[in-house]
Design a protein around this nucleic acid. Structure first.
Length: 278
DNA sequence: CCTTCTACCTGTCAGC
DNA sequence: TGCTGACAGGTAGAAG
């Protein structure tokens, strides 16, 4: 269930073993994940240096020495593991079914990176310089200064969908998923059922601050997981983190003890406190 | 254009 | 024990 903080953790884990190194061998164990790997996927990567690895929203973005960019999305269940890393500590909790090992990168430093994804909602795509990509329409990063009260208020004004739905829209803000949207609107005391266009400027300021706080805290938790386990796993951050409302149905609200409710919006679960969130 | 719905995919778990 | 159905949810594209 990787959202921005988990993808950031993965990025930090992969960077030291991939950035600046050459892809010696790329192996695909099937023709597609969610989408087909493009034609010449292997030949366009093999022999190239990964010059920089960054994150944008929930995407990993690997720039190659050819100037092609490899976009990688973990979908729901994607994870990377690092082998032949002398500092890696094997953790059986992270073991994966090898039948879902779909992509293997072998770098010229002797490190092998395996992408495993049981549900195959993830995808990898090579984009040539100047070619349009999915990231073009992506909204600002939550921690960027341009993501602020006035920006969000402006984006929400006039919108007829709910605040829950609007915050999941990656063109408004990138990187948020179901979990951190639930958590952030709880902190901001806004009901998931509120219409986006009805959120006041004052509430928007509070909401922006809570989104930044929730994301920052989760990145820090992911960072400490990475340090402890020296492995790359988008799920680690979640295990260390307990949520105020997400998946807490019927549990007492941490603020007022009212039982947390679960409702379904746009086919997704929302968890909230109907006493605290208006 | 805007919003909502559905497909995609498999592992897990509750209930019978 | 084994079956069935619900659920997890990010994204794209269709439908409304």
């Amino acid at each position: 269930m990787p959202e921005l903080p988990e993808v950031e953790t993965v990025k930090r884990g992969l960077e030291p073993v991939m950035q600046g190194f050459i892809f010696e061998r790329v192996t695909l164990n099937r023709l597609n994940l969610r989408f087909p790997f493009g034609k010449n996927f292997i030949s366009r990567i093999q022999g190239k240096t990964l010059t920089s690895l960054t994150r944008r929203g929930k995407f990993l973005k690997a720039t190659l020495s050819s100037n092609d960019v490899l976009y990688m999305h973990l979908g729901m269940s994607g994870r990377f593991t690092i082998d032949n890393n002398p500092t890696a500590i094997y953790d059986s909790r992270n073991s994966t079914n090898p039948k879902h090992d779909h992509v293997i990168f072998e770098m010229n430093n002797g490190v092998r990176i395996t992408y495993n994804d049981p549900r195959r909602f993830g995808f990898m795509e090579l984009i040539a310089p100047g070619e349009p990509s999915r990231l073009d329409k992506m909204g600002p990063e939550p921690l960027d200064n341009m993501f602020n009260g006035p920006y969000l208020f402006n984006k929400l004004s006039g919108k007829k969908n709910t605040i829950k739905s609007a915050l999941l829209d990656q063109s408004i803000i990138s990187g948020l998923g179901n979990i951190y949207v639930c958590e952030a609107i709880f902190k901001a005391k806004i009901s998931p059922k509120r219409l986006a266009g009805k959120v006041t400027i004052k509430e928007t300021e509070i909401l922006v601050n809570e989104i930044k706080a929730v994301i920052k805290k989760a990145i820090e938790a992911g960072g400490s997981s990475l340090k402890d386990f020296a492995s790359v796993d988008g799920n680690l951050g979640y295990f260390q983190h307990s949520f105020d409302v997400y998946a807490q149905a019927k549990m007492p609200c941490k603020v007022c003890t009212t039982p947390i409710e679960r409702i379904v919006q746009n086919g997704r679960s929302s968890f909230y406190c109907k006493a605290c969130q208006k």
